[in-house]
Amino acid sequence: MTDDTLLSARGLNLRFGAIPALVDVAVDLWPGEVLAIVGESGSGKTTLLNVLSGRLRPDDGVVWYRDPSGRLHDVHAMPAPKLRALHRSDWGFVQQDPRSALRMGVSAGGNVGERLMAQGLRHYGSIREQAIDWLRQVEIDAARVDDMPRTFSGGMLQRLQIARTLVTHPRLVFMDEPTGGLDVSVQARLLDLIRSLVARLNIAAVLVTHDLAVARLLAHRIVVMQRGVVVEAGLTDQVLDDPQHAYTQLLVSSVLQA
């Protein structure tokens, strides 16, 4: 890895019984960069995301994270409290289903404020103010700050999850199909929002998607996975416009046909 890599993985291997979910995978991510992991269902995208974020331990291989002071951390060798602290501060995770990430019995403001409180902020007014500010940033009416998430639409729930994640200004966000399960017009708006937030806040992101159009819109670089193997990696436009590997060519052409 180079001196300024934010996240770097080498030699990742993981098997689920007979299934090789990751085969000698290497990944690099630079600050402020969005990396998309694409591939068909079952190709190992979620598995890779979970291993990169320390939520799942590989059989083999290492994941390095460089903290803001420049120190490198072996993610899978970190003590659990440190890793959890990292997930609460420098990192964020956006899941496909916002209902499993949000506290559905807690107001929108409480959901957004939770990470601030977990970091020790103890000023109600300031927590609430930041929650309102973040609702605005994800284009939710500030008047909804005291409403329960169950009164929100699917797209709003996902935007609420994004506000809840970004409120502590993470440097690195992991996203697993953040627009999956939403209808197309809602997806487009959400993608726009993610793109502008990530660019404005200079957030690095690892984004899992099986939708090449999503990758094209959001990602600087792309890795293509097939049966646990990274078959192609490079700049998004290059890979999508001029795919080298037969599997990528198939993926790209099937999108064109669709």
């Binding site: 959890r84 506290r103 107001s107 409480g110 939770e114 977990a118 103890r122 927590i127």
Partner: peptide, 17 residues
Amino acid sequence: ALAEYGAMHVRLYEDIT
């Protein structure tokens, strides 16, 4: 073990709200 008590403060936040 990890002194993760943010959730309890969320409860207080909700009450005040």
